[in-house]
Amino acid sequence: MLEYVLAFLIIAGGAFTFIGSLGLARLRDFYSRLHGPTKATTLGVGCVLIASAVYFSQGDQPSLHEILITLFLFITAPVSAHLLAKAALHLKLTSVARRPESENLE
């Protein structure tokens, strides 16, 4: 039973990681590309890390330190996404969406 859960988590993790990078490669403008890696990839790696925690907890001692990386990624991914979006707005990158007109957001 546990084996099926592990296999599912591992494949789901790989699939989400792949979809994140697919979004990075495929979408049209920078702001849209930002969405794939920050969320899908983070969730994918989270799945893989949880699978690893479950796998190494099978012995006599629980192994939960993978949760640290998961938490760290979930906290930092939005921060780097925010900074990247800010930098892109600052550089006035082209965007499919209409750019906000209020200039005081600069």
Binding site: Y31, L34, I75, P78, V79, H82, A85, K86, L89, L105
Partner: peptide, 26 residues
């Protein structure tokens, strides 16, 4: 709030206005 907006897919918070009363979201 900004981190939550960024983590829930479909939206990324991009910029906080200088008066800290509006958040620009993509």
């Amino acid at each position: 709030l900004a981190n939550t907006i960024s983590l829930t897919p479909g939206t990324v918070s991009a910029e906080l206005s200088p008066e800290r009363d509006r958040l620009l979201v993509h």
